[in-house]
């Protein structure tokens, strides 16, 4: 269509609903105690409430994995599909129904391994949606197999003597894709930062890619241990056009001013160092969005029949 076709049928209904956090609550989350996903779910519910998104006009699309249970725990529309294939489904939803709020929840296996092709292309399409990579560096649901983001030498059930390869860097990879328009990184154990990042992602018009560092207490408990215990490991990228939370200054003293418009700076900062960098790496709303490029006026059935009849004339005997 993506014609502008939003229906008028419910336009006349005066909608005086206000939504509380509870209104977005779906089934009780069944992640392990201590799993970082709980905190992400809370931040997302807070965002939905803050933005007063109508539950029926909000769609969460996920793949397969621990994090992909996400839609079940929300009272919005959800599509819990195939491993690695959340992005194509979400693209189809947003392409045809641009008026819906679309969120995608993926794990590191989903996004960076089996669905890596879709990740690159969804970034390039720049369809207006929020894509969350809940990165715990491991396959959790299937009980501890190496993922592309598992740190070097970290053991798993499939690579018990440690991984052989350096971990893939999702932020760097996304920043390398043509037409990438929003790339941010945050951590679930810093709820204020997580929330602000989600909010910035939601308000960005285009494909907002957010990598959320997420602790898995069962399989990768030690990976983010240092970052959690020593705030100095974290370096906050701050800017008026990015994220700046003065309240966090007390704890997170390492700061670097980075203008999200600066793609070269973003790519430099995305390189792996001892520091874990959080904030908005890059943001550019001027980039074309696929659903806008493909937007067409709608036609009634009669018009389409008339046009098709003209088309048949060309083939008439």
């Amino acid at each position: 269509m993506t014609h502008y076709g939003c229906s008028l049928l419910s336009c006349g209904v005066i909608d005086e609903r206000t939504f509380e956090m509870d209104d977005y609550q779906g089934a009780v989350a069944r992640w392990c105690p201590g799993c970082g996903d709980h905190s992400i779910l809370t931040a997302v519910q807070r965002l939905l409430e803050e933005e007063q998104l109508k539950p029926e006009e909000t769609v969460f699309v996920s793949g397969i994995g621990c994090s992909s249970r996400f839609p079940h725990y929300l009272n919005t529309y959800g599509f819990h599909g195939l491993h690695g294939r959340a992005l194509p489904v979400a693209t189809g939803v947003k392409l045809e129904r641009p008026e819906l709020n679309v969120f995608v929840v993926m794990g590191d296996g989903d996004c960076c391994s089996i669905g890596a092709g879709h990740w690159i292309h969804a970034t390039r399409y720049n369809v207006d949606m929020v894509a969350l990579l809940l990165d715990n560096n491991m396959y959790g649901l299937t009980k501890g197999q190496t993922s592309p983001t598992t740190p070097l030498h970290f053991p798993s059930n499939t690579q018990p003597r440690g991984t052989y390869l350096e971990a893939l860097n999702p932020v760097q990879a996304t920043l390398g894709v043509t037409n990438a328009s929003f790339v941010a990184q945050t951590a679930e154990w810093i709820p204020a930062h997580l929330y602000e990042t989600l909010k910035a992602a939601y308000h960005h018009k285009g494909f907002s890619f957010v990598r959320i560092l997420q602790r898995c207490p069962v399989y990768t408990a030690s990976v983010y241990d240092e970052a959690v215990r020593k705030p100095d490991v974290i370096e906050m990228m701050v800017h008026d056009d990015g994220i700046y939370l003065p309240d966090l200054d007390q704890i997170y003293k390492q700061k670097i001013v980075h203008n999200p418009k600066d793609i070269d700076g973003a790519r430099r900062l995305a390189e792996v160092t001892e520091r874990v960098r959080l904030g908005v790496f890059y943001r550019n709303e001027a980039l074309p969005r696929y659903e806008d490029l493909r937007r067409l006026p709608a036609h009634t059935a009669e018009e389409r029949v008339r046009l098709l009849s003209e088309e048949l004339d060309r083939y008439a005997v």
């Binding site: 489904v89 947003k94 392409l95």
Partner: peptide, 13 residues
């Protein structure tokens, strides 16, 4: 795969 995924997303919508 993405081709059918997008079609399913659109139909779901």
């Amino acid at each position: 795969i993405a081709a059918v995924g997008v079609a399913i997303g659109a139909s779901y919508a």
